[in-house]
């Protein structure tokens, strides 16, 4: 099958399976409502921590509160979208361990879509909503000379950020074919990454910023585009227009993640473990 039609098949299967999980969750409405509230409070605490810091200082690494809120909003919203769509990749190891992964392989739908939609949890939307709330406030509060290009950059940045985090979830899932208890390794990069990005690059060491830019290009989720929006110098003196390279960076993440996934699946199908 050509890949556009495979992708369409995947999206279709994803929607079908996710729909079933949403209806399953809704059989326990009270529990659902409670976990949504719990999630909102928990993820909101991250931002409360930032607010507490700013009650003592006026700037963090030279960035003001609305500017840090912009970083926070971009990072948490992009992560929230990716987490909603691909967060279930983390439970792949369990399915491989208990053998129920095989039942996905006998269905006429792409396996990646089935794994990503497995145990789809609408409650994860809470994180994206909370991030979007902070982002909304930040956009009102920051001092930006808005141009058409800058306005367009915002949704593109969110989408590409979600793709970058999504690639991490997929690659992490593929790694669980080899090590079935490796979900924590994946969490270190995904949850760890989004927390890191909530703070300006200037508070971190140069080597860390280099790694997050060139090795695992998380910097393009928010640091680089935010620097462009705010008219600040790019971290590491990246060239002009670096913010507009974000889609390219997202592609550079997604393609290897897809390849790693296929390699993992191939290895599973030849070893059965």
């Amino acid at each position: 099958m050509r890949w556009p039609s495979r992708a369409a098949e995947g999206v279709r299967a994803y929607r079908l399976i996710a729909g079933m999980w949403i209806r399953s969750t809704m059989t326990y409405r009270a529990s659902f409502a409670l976990t949504v509230c719990g999630n909102l409070v928990l993820t909101g605490l991250d931002f409360v921590a930032i607010l507490l810091m700013f009650s003592q200082v006026d700037a963090l690494g030279g960035w003001t509160l609305p500017e840090v809120a912009l970083l926070y909003g971009l990072s948490v919203t992009a992560f929230g979208i990716a987490h909603l769509a691909f967060g279930s990749m983390a439970s792949l190891g369990g399915r491989v361990r208990d053998g129920s992964f095989d039942t996905l392989l006998v269905r006429p739908a792409p396996v990646l879509a089935q794994v990503a939609a497995d145990r789809f949890a609408l409650r994860r939307l809470g994180r994206a909503v909370q991030g979007a709330g902070v982002l909304g406030w930040a956009l009102v509060a920051v001092d930006v000379d808005w141009t058409v290009a800058k306005v367009l950059l915002l949704p593109v940045t969110l989408l590409c950020g979600a793709v970058i985090f999504g690639s991490l979830f997929v690659a992490g899932g593929a790694f669980q074919f080899l090590a079935q208890d490796a979900a924590e390794v994946q969490n270190a990069f995904t949850y760890g990454g989004t927390t890191l990005l909530q703070y300006p690059p200037s508070v971190f060491g140069r080597d860390l910023v280099r790694g997050v830019t060139f090795v695992l290009p998380l910097a393009f989720v928010n640091w680089v585009p935010a620097a462009h929006l705010l008219g600040r110098p790019y971290p590491l003196g990246l060239p002009d227009g670096a913010a507009f390279a974000t889609p390219l960076v997202a592609l550079v993440c997604a393609v290897p993640a897809g390849a790693v996934w296929r390699a993992g699946l191939r290895s599973y199908r030849s070893t059965g473990s």
Binding site: M1, E9, S24, Y28, T103, P108, A109, P110
Partner: peptide
Amino acid sequence: RTRLAHRMGVVFGQRTTLWWDLPLIDSYRL
């Protein structure tokens, strides 16, 4: 794999493919 999946049925005796929390008919609709 997927082309063949349309033409075969599999029942794993000790592992249900039905949706645990939903009425039986929902699994069939899927």
